[in-house]
Computed example of a mutant assay.
Amino acid sequence: MASTILQFNQVSKNYNLGNTIIPILKNINFEINAGDTVSIVGPSGSGKTTLLGLCAGLDQSSEGTIILNGIKLNGLHEDQLAQVRNEHVGFVFQNFQLLPTLTALENVMVPMELRGMRNMKDKAITLLDRVGLSTRADHYPSQLSGGEQQRVSLARAFANSPKILFADEPTGNLDAETSRIVEEMLFELNRESGTTLVVVTHDMELAAKTQRIIPIKGGTIA
């Protein structure tokens, strides 16, 4: 029987604008099982990026309960949330978010250094090789193309062996052919590692490659 790795119970998110409360998400309920691939889809302004932030412990809900890999996120302070992310979560962002002063190899090693892992350099080189960039290990982000930067970020995302990986519009800044390559690498690395994958995207072709789609519209699950 599959175990639940992410659970939302009656989750809402509001923002305060002066004396006005702006509802962003309303009464969200879902469960994701370990090892599943899931996409969250919806138009701009639908709340899907806010939902991803809640999933990953980057933001706190206004109401309801969020449980990630058995850990209740509600009420944790920022240091505790950072520890949860470091130990359980991987990220791939649309704009890559590589550290510009570090080489590709050093960028991949960052999550491992935060966890105090051993044999970091060997593992980082292996991951760069898996995304076809072992010969670019000493290059800085400014010396890499957008597609190469995203492949480095893929290697970095799997560096700390996350239980769940969140990808926010992972091909949003890439051309069609580069997107196809990055998508194939993302799903292949995910299969090999047995990681749970949650993709936020407006690209229905990408969403169709996941086992399940959660559609968001107007702050609710449509």
Rank of each mutant, 00 (worst) to 15 (best):
4 T>D: 07
5 I>E: 03
6 L>R: 07
7 Q>M: 00
7 Q>P: 00
9 N>L: 10
13 K>A: 07
14 N>D: 15
16 N>K: 13
18 G>L: 02
20 T>L: 06
25 L>T: 05
26 K>I: 01
29 N>Y: 11
33 N>T: 03
35 G>M: 11
36 D>E: 15
48 K>N: 04
50 T>E: 06
59 D>N: 13
60 Q>T: 13
60 Q>W: 05
62 S>W: 09
63 E>W: 03
68 L>G: 01
71 I>K: 04
73 L>C: 08
73 L>R: 10
74 N>E: 15
75 G>C: 04
76 L>T: 04
76 L>C: 02
78 E>Q: 05
81 L>P: 12
82 A>I: 04
82 A>L: 07
83 Q>R: 11
86 N>Q: 12
86 N>E: 05
87 E>M: 01
90 G>W: 03
91 F>C: 09
92 V>D: 05
93 F>W: 06
99 L>Y: 05
100 P>D: 02
108 V>H: 04
110 V>Q: 08
112 M>G: 03
113 E>G: 05
114 L>M: 13
115 R>G: 13
118 R>D: 15
120 M>G: 05
121 K>W: 12
121 K>C: 12
122 D>N: 14
126 T>C: 01
128 L>V: 06
128 L>R: 03
135 T>K: 13
139 H>K: 03
140 Y>H: 13
146 G>S: 03
147 G>F: 02
151 R>P: 12
152 V>A: 01
155 A>K: 14
155 A>G: 11
166 F>L: 07
171 T>I: 14
171 T>D: 15
172 G>M: 12
174 L>Q: 09
175 D>I: 08
179 S>W: 08
180 R>V: 06
183 E>Q: 14
188 E>I: 06
188 E>M: 08
194 G>T: 14
198 V>A: 10
199 V>I: 15
204 M>C: 00
205 E>T: 00
205 E>H: 00
206 L>E: 08
206 L>T: 08
207 A>R: 08
207 A>K: 08
209 K>V: 08
210 T>P: 07
214 I>T: 05
215 P>A: 11
